[in-house]
Amino acid sequence: MNLLLDAIRWVFDPANYGGPNGIDTRSGEHLALSGLVLLIAVVIAVPFGYFIGHTGHGRGIIVPLSGGVRALPTLGLLILVALNVGIGVVAPVVALVVLAIPSILAGAYSGFEAIDRRVIDAARAVGMTEWQILIRVEIPLGLPLLIGGLRSASLQVIATATLADYVSGGGLGHFLFLGLQTNNYPEMLGGSIVVIVLALASEGLFGLLQRLVVPAGVAARQPKDVRLRPVRSQTALG
C-alpha cells in the first residue's frame, strides 16, 4: 500500500510535469498516437466492413483472417517493423493499426448484420437504391455496434501504446521502461495509473457515445446494452 501511495504522490508531483518527459507531454503523445492509429484503422476497416455487411461478400475470407490477426503478438510485430523502418513512431503506428483493425471491422459488418433483414427488404421494396439503403438505413442503424468496435479498439490501442516507447515511439510507456531499468517503483506504478486512467476515460467516453448514437426509435424499443461482445475479444495488450 505504501508503494501505491508513493505512486499516487508521483502522479501528483509537480516536478514530474513539463518538459519533454513530463507526465502531461507523455500523456499527450500517448493520446495523439492512439488517436492517429484509430483514425487510420477506421479509414481502412470501415469501408471494408460496410462492404462485407452490405453485400455479404468476402465474409468467408475476412472473418477468419481477422481472427488470425487477433492471434498476432503485437510486441513481435512492433519490433519487426521497427527493425525494418527504424525506431521511432512509425513502427508503433503500424503495429497498433493492425491491432485495431479486427475490432473495428467486426463492429462495422456486424452492425449491418444485426439489422432486421425485413427492414432492409422493405426499404428495397419501397424503392430505395442500394446507396440510399446504405446511407439512410444501414449506417445509422449499424452505428451503435460500430462505436462498440471502436470502443474495444480504443481500449486495446491505449493499453498497447505503452509498448511504443520500447522502440522509442514515445508515450506513457516511457515511465514504465525507465522505472523498470532504475527499479523506481513509484514511477512504474504511477505511469501505470496514468495509463489506466486514460483507458477508463476512453471506455467512459465511447460508452457514452455508444448510447448517444442509438437512433431514438430503436432506443425506445430496446434499452439493451449495445456493447459488442464478440468484438471485445482481444484482451488489451501492453
Binding site: A159, L163, L176, M188, G191, I196, A199, T235, A236, L237
Partner: peptide
C-alpha cells in the same frame, strides 16, 4: 479488463 497488461505485470509484484 480496462487495465493494460504491461502496467499490470509491472504493478502486480508490489501488490
Amino acid at each position: 479488463y480496462a487495465i493494460p497488461s504491461f502496467p499490470l505485470f509491472v504493478a502486480l509484484p508490489s501488490l
